[in-house]
Design a protein around this nucleic acid. Structure first.
Length: 566
RNA sequence: UGCCCGAUAGCUCAAUUGGCAGAGCGGCUGACUCUGGAUCAGCAGGUUCCAGGUUCGAUCCCUGGUCGGGCAGCCA
């Protein structure tokens, strides 16, 4: 029994941000909801950004409002068009819809300058000639107030003139700034006469050389939100301390005022989540690039085989986070992709560590096809044919010469089912001089074709296999956590976080897979039954497919084995 | 020895603006099964950081501690 209330609750998630918005709507502060995702085009997006996108977009959608994608391109030194393309692709892939509202902060530069002039006229902004070093020296410390700039009390006319000359390019980089005149003694250092404009004779990726003064984040961001009619400007916790400044600018200008609300920044265990670290890992060769499947970038996750649905589900499970930053267990992300892939991925059989099996009573040279279900979770996915023959490969782990208790797979004298194939019984174990098992001689029961015994006989285990003659050889890239510790920063004195890199984070090897996967395009996803989910990597060629292991299946046998002290 | 924020089951979060502390994941147990997967059912009993205070009653209010995080870019 679900009550209407319960339904409503399920349909509309509740958290302190949504509660605040509902309140704003109820008391008339706003009569609509409009959010935005404002990335700076200076890096690839990671799953932390996905969380932000999904909060911004999700809230707009739930409240029947609008969502903008806006590039906060206010610093030409750090930004590149390559990133705007990549970010657009990532946000689209994630599934957020900004309609025709793709904006760039740089398109507002003219308006921002007009507002800056207004503030100068109101005596609330001034041109400061302090060097960066001097400014730092006069800002005070966290415990001591700063001191006023000697240029703080210039006349409006002088400021107007100087600012005009800053804009026309008369002064070198770093020589002057336009500052808001607020309070050098504020306990909130952000309010100590923050810089609004700095001089940068730099080429902007969209504005070219039109400008040589660029607005700072604090000055620009609220204006951008205001111009776009954003109602709720959602950002991460580190901006909380900037909120008074965000409000101050808008209030002094007397323009439309959005409301900034902060949510928790996302961290994940066993990985790192910052542009700086990504660059470092790439530069030092620990990963192959920003789309390395071991990185939590959206490009990396996509290549690894993650679906947008799984990432969204993850974001929803994580929620907005309380009022403190959160570190989420990587296993939760993995659980999300398993849940999604379980529903949708095509099953195939593939053997990672082959052990040859010869069916001694199977006719020489005979080949046949057995029917297999493509996806037990989705009958509409249909069936396919898998070739079967006298010589097969099974997983080495599926045979034990001396099976421990609860091991229900193949062992000497034991009968198991080859999935969709026949029951087979192990008659003989062939070993080489060193004692390594190189082949199994088994008999099959022709009456059990398809996997069912007419006499009602049961077997405890079902294992996967491929026909040695028909299987195709592929490359598999077996990924594991990038770091060996939940917190990569937990290192001994003198070592850096890379000391915690997991040496096993990538293992490349060959595997045999049933021929139905031949020709699969990059991005195609499969479940290799009983093993893991795999995704075709772009490195694949027509001659050789490359599969990335997205995530293993839950392995309850591993748990049993561990519990038995094995 | 500044300002701001936080501290609830292993983890991440809730708790109708004071009223018997709940969920998801993990974990454990069982059922079932042609993936030991999936699925399903059940279980979990946490001094709600500590010490005071207000109150009939505090996770939620006040005071003081402790611990953690953020802030001193002409980064965002």
């Amino acid at each position: 029994m679900t009550t209407p209330e319960a339904n409503a609750r399920d349909a509309a998630p509740s958290d302190f941000i949504r509660d605040a918005i509902r309140e704003d709507l109820a008391n008339g502060r706003y009569d609509r909801v409009h959010t935005r995702f404002p990335p700076e085009p200076n890096a690839y997006l990671h799953i932390g950004h996905a969380k932000a996108v999904w909060i911004d977009y999700g809230i707009a959608r739930e409240f029947g409002g609008l969502f903008n994608l806006r590039f906060d391109d206010t610093n030409p030194l750090k930004e590149e068009p390559e990133f705007v393309e990549a970010i657009i692709e990532d946000v689209r892939w994630l599934g957020a819809d900004w309609g025709d509202r793709l904006y760039f902060a740089s398109d507002y530069f003219e308006q921002m300058v007009e507002w800056a002039i207004q503030l100068i006229r109101q005596g609330q902004a001034y041109v400061c000639d302090l060097s960066p070093e001097e400014m730092r020296a006069t800002r005070g410390t966290l415990t001591e107030p700063g001191t006023d700039s000697p240029y703080r009390n210039r006349s409006v006319d002088e400021n107007l003139g100087l600012f005009a000359r800053m804009r026309s390019g008369e002064f070198p980089d770093g020589s002057r700034t336009l500052r808001a005149k607020i309070d050098m003694a504020s306990p909130n250092v952000v309010m100590r006469d923050p810089v609004m404009y700095r001089i940068r004779h730099a080429e902007h990726h969209r504005q070219g050389t039109k400008w040589c003064v660029y607005p700072s984040y604090d000055w620009a961001h609220g204006l951008e939100d205001s111009i776009e009619g954003v109602t709720h400007s959602l950002c991460t916790l580190e901006y909380e301390i900037h909120r008074p400044l965000y409000d101050w600018f808008l209030e002094q200008l007397g323009i439309y005022r959005p409301r900034q609300i902060e949510f928790a920044r996302l961290s994940l265990t066993y990985t790192v989540m910052s542009k700086r670290r990504f660059v470092d890992l790439v530069d030092r060769g620990f990963v192959i690039g920003f789309d390395d499947p071991r990185l939590p970038t959206l490009a990396g996750l996509r290549r690894r085989g993650y679906t947008p649905e799984a990432i969204r589900e993850f974001c929803e499970r994580v929620g907005v986070g309380g009022r403190a930053d959160t570190t989420i267990d990587m296993h939760m992300l993995e659980d999300c992709i398993r849940e999604d892939l379980n529903q949708r991925s095509t099953r195939v059989m593939g053997v990672l560590n082959p052990l040859r099996v010869v069916l001694t009573n199977y006719p020489d040279g005979q080949t046949e096809e057995v029917d297999a279900i493509n996806n037990p979770e989705d009958p509409s996915a249909g069936t396919r044919k898998i070739p079967f023959g006298k010589t097969l490969y099974i997983e080495r782990d599926d045979f034990r010469k001396e099976p421990p208790p609860k091991f229900f797979r193949l062992a000497p004298g034991r009968e198991v089912r080859l999935r969709y194939g026949y029951f087979i019984t192990c008659q003989e174990v062939i070993e080489d001089e060193s004692g390594e098992i190189v082949e199994l001689r088994c008999t099959y029961d022709p009456a059990t074709r398809g996997g069912d015994a007419p006499d009602g006989r049961k077997v405890k285990g079902t294992i996967h296999w491929v026909s040695a003659e028909h299987a195709i050889e592929v490359e598999v890239r077996l990924y594991d956590h990038l770091f060996a510790k939940p917190d990569p920063d937990e290192v001994d004195e003198g070592l850096d976080y890379t000391a915690n890199l997991n040496p096993e984070s990538l293992r490349v090897q060959a595997a045999y897979v049933e021929p139905s996967v031949a020709g699969a395009p990059a991005g195609a996803r499969y479940q290799f039954e009983r093993l893991a989910y795999f995704c075709v990597d772009p490195d694949s060629s027509p001659e050789r497919l490359v599969f990335n292991r997205t995530v293993t299946l839950r392995d309850s046998w591993a748990k049993i084995e561990k519990a038995m002290g094995g």
